[in-house]
Amino acid sequence: MSVFASLVERLADLLHPLFGASAAAAAIVLFTALVRLLVHPLSRAAARGQKARAALQPKIAELRRRHGGNPEKLQRAVLDLHAREKVSPLSGCLPSLFQLPAFFLLYHLFSSGTIGGRDNELLGHELFAAPLGGRWTDALGAGGPFGGPGLVYAGLFALVAVVAAFGYRLTKRSMAANAAAAGGGSGEQQVPGMAAMTRALPFMSFLTLVTVAVVPLAAALYVVTSTTWSVVERAVLYR
């Protein structure tokens, strides 16, 4: 943890001439961008996997017509198809999984009062008027929704809402394309409960609003930056 704290502090020192008191916040945004840049090859592989899975939809639809009355046989046939075509149904999860350690490090860093036996000086840094170690409830208690910290969160919520709406449209468009490729039905409906999950999937982007509201502001900045990167990346890779 102390090594990670030193990295954030060094980035903040480098950015201080440009961002002043908000240098630590800028350092978190830069750190997030660096993490996403490192994960980008996995994102490209996930995009290729998604396109490969979309190309399999007509064959999966045929399997559904052939084995629709036998769910177990259908599931085995679909798994065999993925294995023959060397397409992993889980490849899209890898970019998110590899980002989790960075998020949790930030979360714990800005939730702890001490680092290596000394006071955590990073908690004193701010994004404009909002402490990076504070939460939305703290901002509301420090002046209400229109106080300085409250307005910082209002700006974050507005940004997240715009990004989530764009992500919603991308997801709906991708699902419509997959359904069309499968001949009007989703080739992955053989998994129990997948239909309900598929209907809820486009709305998952809006859960970022909840995350921003409950985690420390530093972790919220990571989430907002990473989510924005993801949406732009999806728009480019899945076009």
Rank of each mutant, 00 (worst) to 15 (best):
38 L>W: 10
132 L>W: 02
127 L>Q: 00
63 L>F: 08
80 D>C: 02
1 M>K: 12
32 T>E: 05
143 G>K: 07
230 S>R: 03
113 G>R: 10
1 M>G: 14
81 L>V: 07
74 L>T: 05
73 K>R: 15
125 H>W: 13
174 S>Q: 13
161 A>V: 10
136 W>S: 00
11 L>E: 07
82 H>P: 04
61 A>R: 08
153 Y>N: 03
55 A>E: 14
119 D>A: 14
140 L>K: 03
169 R>Q: 15
106 L>M: 10
137 T>S: 13
157 F>V: 05
203 F>P: 05
198 T>S: 11
23 A>G: 05
39 V>H: 04
18 L>Y: 06
160 V>P: 01
201 L>P: 00
133 G>F: 03
3 V>M: 07
232 V>E: 01
38 L>E: 02
150 G>D: 07
8 V>W: 02
100 L>F: 15
234 R>H: 13
219 A>G: 04
149 P>T: 07
183 G>D: 07
109 L>F: 08
219 A>N: 04
61 A>M: 02
71 P>R: 11
98 F>T: 14
144 G>E: 05
20 G>A: 10
90 L>D: 09
62 E>V: 04
74 L>H: 08
197 M>E: 06
238 Y>D: 11
120 N>W: 08
200 A>K: 04
188 E>Y: 13
115 I>C: 05
201 L>Y: 11
67 H>E: 08
171 T>A: 13
39 V>T: 14
231 V>K: 00
10 R>I: 08
170 L>T: 10
29 V>T: 06
228 T>S: 12
59 K>W: 00
50 Q>P: 00
132 L>K: 02
48 R>L: 14
19 F>W: 06
197 M>P: 00
114 T>S: 12
17 P>Y: 06
109 L>Y: 04
83 A>S: 13
147 G>S: 06
52 A>I: 08
127 L>A: 01
144 G>W: 02
100 L>Q: 07
98 F>M: 15
183 G>H: 08
236 V>G: 03
25 A>K: 05
